Simulated scan of single mutants.
Amino acid sequence: MWEDFKKFALKGNILDLAIAVIIGTAFGKVVSSLVEDIIMPVVGMLVGGISVENWSYTFNDVVLHYGLFIQAIIDFFIISFSIFVVIRIFINLKRKKDIPAAEEPEVLDKTQELLVEIRDLLSKEKTGQ
């Protein structure tokens, strides 16, 4: 059973997934800090110092903190947009990498040129030209 578990745990896909989760968690913390510490204070200044997080409603000794919910929605959209932008950048970089560069014509020495001519002559003979 231990050997089966080692094979499973050390597969490339499992390790890639673990690395992605760790990097995703770290990226989430960075984006959350960006939202909480930079973007929302600027938004608060633009709307006259209003803090959405403090909005609440009291109903028979029950406090509904709907401002926290609104803040979570705003955070979600900003984080989603940030991830979208990062993924889009990676896709564009991958596309540029996948596009083959214009290949320079290969310089052949005399032996290679003769072999190419022989190959072409043999292929013409096979096709009956």
Rank of each mutant, 00 (worst) to 15 (best):
Y66S: 07
I70T: 04
I78K: 00
S51Q: 10
A101H: 04
E36G: 09
I83R: 05
N60E: 15
T58H: 10
K94V: 15
I22P: 05
D37G: 03
D4R: 07
A26K: 14
L68K: 12
I14T: 04
V47Y: 02
I89M: 07
L34A: 04
I73G: 06
T127I: 15
I14L: 11
E3Y: 13
G67H: 01
K7G: 01
D109Q: 03
L108E: 03
M45A: 15
F77W: 11
S51W: 08
Q71V: 09
M1I: 11
R95W: 11
I99G: 00
P41S: 05
E106T: 07
F76T: 12
I39L: 09
G24M: 04
D61R: 05
L15P: 03
L68F: 06
I79P: 01
F81D: 08
S32D: 13
F77R: 05
K94Y: 15
D98Q: 09
F27S: 14
F81I: 12
K29E: 03
S123V: 13
D98P: 03
E103R: 13
I89H: 01
G128L: 05
Q112A: 14
L34T: 02
K94S: 12
I91C: 05
I99F: 00
L15A: 09
E125L: 12
S82R: 02
F5M: 03
Q71I: 08
Y57V: 13
V86C: 10
V31A: 14
D109R: 01
M1Y: 06
K124I: 09
V116W: 01
A72Y: 02
F69R: 10
E125M: 08
S80D: 13
I73E: 03
S51M: 08
D37L: 08
I87N: 15
L17M: 15
F90R: 06
L34P: 04
S56C: 04
V31Q: 05
K97C: 10
K124Y: 10
I38V: 15
Q112F: 06
R119K: 03
A101P: 09
R88T: 13
R95I: 14
I50T: 11
K6V: 11
F69G: 12
P105S: 08
G67W: 01
L46A: 06
M45D: 15
G24D: 02
D75N: 13
G44V: 07
A101T: 07
E117N: 07
V86K: 02
F8N: 02
F84Q: 12
A102V: 10
Q71N: 09
E36A: 13
I38K: 13
A20K: 03
I78R: 00
V85M: 05
K7L: 11
G67S: 02
A101N: 10
M45T: 14
D109V: 04
A101F: 04
L15M: 07
K94E: 13
V85Q: 07
V30T: 12
I89K: 02
L115N: 11
T111Q: 12
F59Y: 14
I99W: 00
G12Y: 09
I91Q: 14
V52E: 04
I73M: 10
L46N: 02
Y66T: 02
I38E: 09
V21W: 11
S80P: 04
A102E: 11
Q112W: 08
T111W: 04
N54L: 05
K7F: 04
L10T: 14
D16F: 14
A9K: 02
I83W: 05
I99P: 01
E125Q: 06
K7C: 01
N60A: 15
K29Q: 08
K126S: 07
V85K: 00
D37E: 09
E104R: 05
